[in-house]
């Protein structure tokens, strides 16, 4: 039931950022997902304890949002956007290609890969687009999508890097990127400061905090 030292340290950092403890529920849920790979009952209990609300309240919040996965979704979560813009550009074919290659219907997962359809992910200009562990690839085609899944299965990257994937499998983008980034995601949750990638040193952030 208890978290690792690192996660508890992150939890302390997160709690310090908000005037009220309950506000930390959402970021702490990401910590819980990072701890167990998905959101377990124990993880929610721990968040409840840290924020002083009941586990039912934590689950109520967690279940409201799509990105808290209460079932295992594998190491790589492929979220294919099938909303209007991507749909117009053939997203359904891409999703079918992903499902075929992964051998999993959307909404399910094996140990390695989870596939889901997502509502708009904000990459309409580069449609069709998908997220792998919430890192974006734009301008997909069915063939490229199959290659992507095959690559995930064979290369088993530890860190999912958007630039790398875009270069390998992507096409047209919403706007010119130009700016390269080394960081990436380490699991099926967003790679963001306090709870995401391994290589972001949170101590270096916000040195002058007054709260």
């Amino acid at each position: 039931m208890s978290w690792s030292e690192e996660s508890l340290q992150r939890a302390d950092d997160i709690l310090a950022r908000y005037p009220e403890k309950r506000s930390a529920v959402m970021p702490l849920l990401y910590v819980a997902m990072r701890e167990d790979g998905y959101l377990t009952d124990d993880g929610m209990r721990q968040v409840a304890e840290l924020t002083g609300v009941t586990p039912a309240q934590v689950q109520s919040t967690a279940s409201f949002y799509n990105m808290y996965k209460r079932e295992p979704v594998g190491k790589y979560l492929v979220s294919m956007c099938t909303s209007i813009s991507c749909f117009l550009m053939g997203a359904d074919d891409v999703l079918h290609a992903i499902e075929d290659e992964a051998g999993i219907p959307a909404g399910e997962a094996d140990d390695e890969i989870g596939v889901e359809h997502a509502e708009c992910i904000g990459a309409c200009g580069g449609a069709p687009a998908c997220l792998v562990n919430y890192e974006l690839i734009e301008g997909l085609t069915p063939d490229k999508a199959k290659e992507l899944v095959a690559w995930l299965r064979s290369a088993k990257p530890d860190v999912i890097n958007a630039d790398e994937m875009q270069a390998l499998f992507g096409g047209k983008t919403s706007f010119d990127w130009g700016i390269r980034e080394e960081r990436g995601a380490v699991g099926p949750f967003p790679a963001f400061g306090p709870f995401g990638t391994a290589d972001v040193n949170t101590d270096a952030l916000e040195p002058g905090r007054s709260t």
């Binding site: 890192e135 967003p190 963001f192 400061g193 995401g196 952030l205 040195p207 002058g208 007054s210």
Partner: peptide, 25 residues
């Protein structure tokens, strides 16, 4: 939540602003 990369950029910008004394005390 689907924008971790933009969020990282913003977090970096905020951190830099703190470092420069544009944010904080």
């Amino acid at each position: 939540g689907e924008y971790p990369k933009p969020a990282r950029r913003v977090q970096q910008a905020v951190a830099d602003a703190y470092a420069k004394g544009f944010l904080g005390k």
